[in-house]
């Protein structure tokens, strides 16, 4: 369980997050959505202790993220930040392998190698294992980064816009893989998503932010209504039901 209480965050006087209270239960896929500048990435970065917490508390299974040793946290939580590019000339297998670093501290053992092999297979990267990351397409590189975070083998997996630069087929495949990881392996996945309908189709819960405030938090079916989306995006978005999924018709 990730518990967020009274969290506010400001940069140079500008409020980014204001008084967030939120509990993300263990297990399942939770999607963070909201318009640009809502504070989704900031909230994710605060949970992952990538940004210093200035007010409020965030705990992960009872551990306060800002006071738990960073190494200990790395065994419980993995994060893929929205970092521009991996400039480094590493092979895919090497990059994914660095996800195991918190476990082996530089001396990979058999179980680490097995974990890397599993991650490569799961994310369909086996054919690319020997390629340098900087020779990959944007989508392939993005998959390698998600695989690296997965390979860290933590209970919690935080992903900031993992669908960036993925084409529609790979985007769907990645969301399905995340779904499987949550269902079969009992991981807790928190994912910032730009596209509402990926959340609608694959997430168990949706947390919606707008201008730094929490405006919705609940099971996907409850959030995916025209009324709630109106509060999140400030505009009317029709919602249709297709094959049991609620889909936002934001193109029309």
């Amino acid at each position: 369980m990730i518990r967020i209480s009274n969290v506010s965050y400001a940069i140079a006087g500008t409020t980014i997050l204001e008084d967030i209270d939120l509990a993300i239960p263990s297990g399942g896929v939770t999607a963070l959505i909201g318009p640009n500048g809502a504070g989704k990435s900031t909230l994710l970065s605060l949970i992952a202790r990538l940004l210093p917490l200035s007010s409020g508390t965030i705990t992960l299974d009872g551990l306060p993220v800002d006071r738990t040793p960073t190494r200990a946290l790395a065994l419980r939580l993995a994060v893929m930040a929205q970092e521009g590019s991996v400039a480094s000339r590493l092979r895919v297998e090497e990059l994914v392998g660095f996800g195991r670093f918190p476990h082996h501290r530089g001396r990979p053992r058999a179980q680490d190698q097995a974990a890397v092999a599993e991650a490569l297979a799961l994310f369909d990267l086996e054919a690319l294992a020997d390629r340098f990351v900087d020779t990959l397409s944007g989508g392939q590189r993005q998959r390698a980064r998600v695989a690296m975070a997965y390979c860290q083998g933590t209970d919690y997996l935080l992903l900031d816009e993992p669908l960036n630069s993925l084409d529609i087929i790979y985007a769907r495949a990645l969301m399905r893989t995340l779904r499987r990881i949550a269902d079969d392996r009992g991981r807790t996945i928190v994912v910032v998503l730009h596209d509402l309908n990926h959340a609608a189709a694959h997430a168990d819960r949706i947390v919606a932010l707008r201008e730094g405030r929490l405006v919705a938090d609940g099971p996907t079916g409850e959030v995916m209504t025209t009324a709630t989306l109106q509060r999140v995006f400030g505009d009317t978005i029709p919602v249709a039901e297709v094959d049991g999924h609620r889909i936002a018709l934001h193109f029309v």
Partner: peptide, 10 residues
């Protein structure tokens, strides 16, 4: 690989 990755890996 950058600060975020480094911190994420503990």
């Amino acid at each position: 690989l950058g600060r975020a990755t480094a911190v994420g890996l503990g």
